[in-house]
Design a protein around this nucleic acid. Structure first.
Length: 735
RNA sequence: GCGCGCUUAGCUCAGUUGGUAGAGCAAUUCGUUUACACCGAAAAGGUCGGGGGUUCAAAUCCCUCAGCGCGCACCA
């Protein structure tokens, strides 16, 4: 017997070597599998993209979960002999990455403007290269069977080509436009952010009731008195009889020393129940007020700047922060006896998800994707009568339909509703960011002229300084990684991808954007199914993440201690799609014990079954098969059926648990225990039993391989008649 | 305000189409002449959040209430 088997199983001794063996075999690449006859050229395909981790740091345990699930899918499908492709890559994560590097600079008392755009970007490049290299090591340690020959980066040259081509097409179709309107401004990050990057936090606030001046007839209520410096109207509901007589009038007021011209208007958006039922309209600093101003042709005065400071030319306010001005104004109103009431209310403040800064709504000239503008569909691959090639639709309708009609199936299904709800609230997507790291907007200006171009159209042209939202490039991921805009074989062979596996927290950010881009650019869905996993929680139920150092766990430390196989099993067993997972060290330890159990099973079988072929099927044809052994084989057949069924329906958590129980409590505790006496007795019964043990071990390794690839591959290599790697064996089929 | 999820053994959670409950860890008892103490055997532990309904039968389906968590919207 092999000397290695005599020691207890020690994962770190084997895992790196095994991964190297897999890589060298080339079988992670489906082209190699076809060339070497492992898969048939005309076989079905299974393709999946790795959600590209951000190059802002290293992987955490949450990533380990997604890798475990995806690798299980990939290895299972590879064993079904499909042409199986799993594409690796990383995401430049524009804002996150830039803010990490900016923070590092500030520790050295520097800022990016001192460095200049080019040097700053070089710094970012150094940083991201290091992150990337760490991430690649981590991916390999987890056992991820990714096709490294196809590795991509959202900001590399090929993806740049895809981004440019997309931008140009959308611009020419009128789906990308430049517009002046209220955006979510992050004063800390000094950039706009999209609606989805804004979080709402509950907070107690004061609602102030007052009049602009003593002669003004109507009391208004607001939580932000400082913005009233930019008011141009007071709006009331058309059905509100209290204010009827004032409608249409324009009243000149002196609001805390600042002259304003206030028009009284009626608008059905005003809630007569809230405050006094009269709303001070601030067109430049509120989304709703901006729209009202458009409807009523009101003047729009910007009074707050990008640094959240007041711009009004008055010595008491100019260049002071909004909070400070608020206090000053409230004090003045009180002195002038204009403040009628202060009411404590619960409300939500908008905060930038990335920087934590309070969002300041500001009017700005930005680039948007129009989700409601009609355009013609390119392809013929989207189901539904309204969607044949050349018909007219909008991005919003398309995004909605492909999910509601189940062309794209979401698992678990409840997220279908969440997705639909998001779509009903979807506005045009602001895609320009005032940061340096990312895809630069390919538009050049000369005076009033604008041109789309990759390179400068001439000497006096200047490129738009802004970059694109990081999700613009990741939205292209399913096809930009397959070679688009070139019409490659990969694109023909592997798109739409079979499934997308990711966390439910990026359903809107990423999944929705990929659907948008793919249906628009290719006229086909990006993936047939979406499997959403939950969040990893620590044992106190807190979300594990980089931003929470108390709970962040480097998966490499866990792997070193318990092995990747144990970590994978601990993440999978008992965790259904979409549900959160409290991962405890005890659970991981339990599966390390399981790995050791398998190891010892292999030792027992190899010691006792020398001379046996271990050949699949050898038992079935054996005349000396005993009724008891046949019963065991029949039971195993049932296991294959159940596990296969679970795999097909994405019930990995059940499949893994069943395999665990079978191996430990049926194979080891019953079959092996029984075999001891039979083998001692010798004769035909003993031979039959030995034959069965070898057969069952080999088949179990196959079933366990997607879940615990390392140890199963290692043991496989120690068995007789195993010239091929286990990773390219066929998944057991039921007789 | 709208929507979603969760509530099962001390802890963390499974329970796939309804057939009166399972795992890991912890705790109890016993066992070590070698596959494995990272082990084996045995026993213990639950009115499946409360209430109501459908059914021959409900942890599972329906209604309702409560607690916890999440998403979205509003936010003058």
């Amino acid at each position: 017997m092999n000397e290695e088997l005599k020691k207890p199983f020690n994962p770190i001794e084997h895992e790196n070597l095994i991964y190297k063996k897999w890589e060298e075999s080339g079988f992670f690449n489906p082209d190699v599998c076809v060339a070497k006859g492992v898969t048939k050229a005309e076989a079905d395909y299974f393709s999946i993209v790795l959600p590209p981790p951000n190059v802002t740091g290293t992987l955490h345990t949450g990533h380990a979960l997604m890798l475990a699930i995806q690798d299980i899918m990939v290895r299972y499908n590879r064993m079904l002999k499909k042409r199986t492709l799993w594409i690796p890559g990383t995401d430049h994560a524009a804002i996150s990455t830039e803010s990490v590097v900016v923070k590092q600079l500030s520790k050295e008392n520097k800022n990016k403007h001192e460095l200049g755009r080019e040097e700053f970007l070089n710094k970012v490049k150094d940083f991201t290269q290091k992150s990337h290299d760490t991430i690649v090591v981590q991916l390999k340690k987890m056992g991820a069977s990714l096709d490294w020959s196809r590795e991509a980066f959202t900001l590399d040259e090929k993806r740049e080509e895809a981004v440019y081509t997309t931008f140009e097409k959308m611009y020419n179709d009128g789906l990308i436009y430049r517009g002046y309107r209220i955006v979510n401004w992050d004063p800390k990050g000094q950039t706009t952010v999209s609606d989805d990057e804004v979080e709402h936090q509950p907070k107690k606030a004061k609602l102030y009731y007052f009049k602009y001046d003593k002669d003004f007839p109507i009391t208004i209520a607001t939580t932000r008195p400082e913005t009233k410096l930019g008011d141009t109207a007071v709006a009331v509901n058309p059905d509100d009889s209290r204010y009827k007589k004032y409608i249409g009038k324009t009243i000149e007021v002196n609001f805390v020393g600042v002259p304003l011209s206030i028009k009284i208007i009626e608008d059905k958006e005003v809630d007569p129940e809230f405050g006094t039922g009269a709303l001070g309209v601030t067109p430049s600093h509120s989304q709703i007020d901006w729209q009202m101003a458009d409807r009523h042709k009101l003047e729009k005065i910007q009074i707050i700047n990008e640094y959240a400071k007041v711009m009004v030319d008055h010595p008491d306010y100019k260049d002071k922060k909004v909070e400070e001005v608020r206090k000053i104004i409230v004090d003045k109103l009180r002195e002038q006896n204009l403040l009628e009431k202060e009411e404590e209310i619960d409300h939500n403040i908008s905060v930038s998800q990335r920087t934590g800064a309070v969002i300041e709504p500001l009017p700005k000239l930005q680039w948007f994707i129009d989700v409601n503008r009609p355009f013609k569909i390119k392809g013929d691959n989207i189901k539904g009568q309204a969607f044949s090639k050349g018909s007219t639709t909008t991005l919003k309708i398309l995004m909605s339909e492909v999910v509601s009609n189940n062309q794209i199936k979401i698992i678990p299904e409840r997220f279908k509703k969440v997705y639909a709800e998001w779509l009903t609230n979807l506005h045009d997507w602001c895609i320009s960011r005032q940061i340096w790291y990312g895809h630069r907007i390919p538009v050049w200006y000369r005076g009033e002229e604008a041109k789309i171009s990759k390179k400068s159209p001439g000497e006096d042209w200047e490129q738009d300084p802004d970059t694109l939202d990081t999700w613009f490039s990741s939205g292209l991921w399913t096809f930009s990684t397959l070679g688009w805009p070139e019409n490659t074989d990969d694109l023909k062979n592997y798109h739409p991808t079979s499934i997308l596996e990711t966390g439910h927290d990026i359903l809107f950010f990423w999944v929705a954007r990929m659907i948008l881009m793919s249906v628009y650019i290719l006229g086909e869905i990006p993936f047939k199914e979406v499997y959403l996993h939950g969040m990893i929680l620590d044992k106190n139920g807190k979300k594990m993440s980089k931003s929470n150092p108390e709970t962040a766990v480097d998966p490499l430390l866990t792997i070193e201690k318990y092995g990747a196989d144990a970590l994978r099993m601990a993440m999978i067993v008992g965790v259904g799609p979409g549900s959160n997972n409290s991962l405890s060290e005890d659970k991981i330890k339990a599966y390390k014990h399981f790995a050791n159990k398998i190891w010892n099973i292999a030792r027992f079988v190899l010691e006792n079954c020398q001379g046996q072929s271990f050949e699949v099927g050898a038992v079935q044809g054996l005349s000396l098969a005993t009724p008891e052994n046949n019963a065991h084989l029949e039971k195993f057949d049932g296991l294959i059926k159940e596990v296969t069924d679970d795999m097909e329906n994405y019930r990995f958590y059940l499949a893994a648990e069943k395999l665990y129980h079978y191996t430990w409590h049926t194979f080891a505790d019953i079959i092996i225990e029984e075999s001891k006496t039979k083998i001692k007795e010798g004769g035909e019964k003993a031979e039959s039993t030995k034959n069965m043990l070898g057969f069952l071990l080999k088949e179990q390794l196959k079933l366990l391989h997607p879940f615990m690839p390392f140890i199963t591959e290692k043991i496989w290599s120690l068995l007789p008649n195993t010239e091929n790697l286990l990773m390219i064996e066929s998944w057991p089929s039921r007789k």
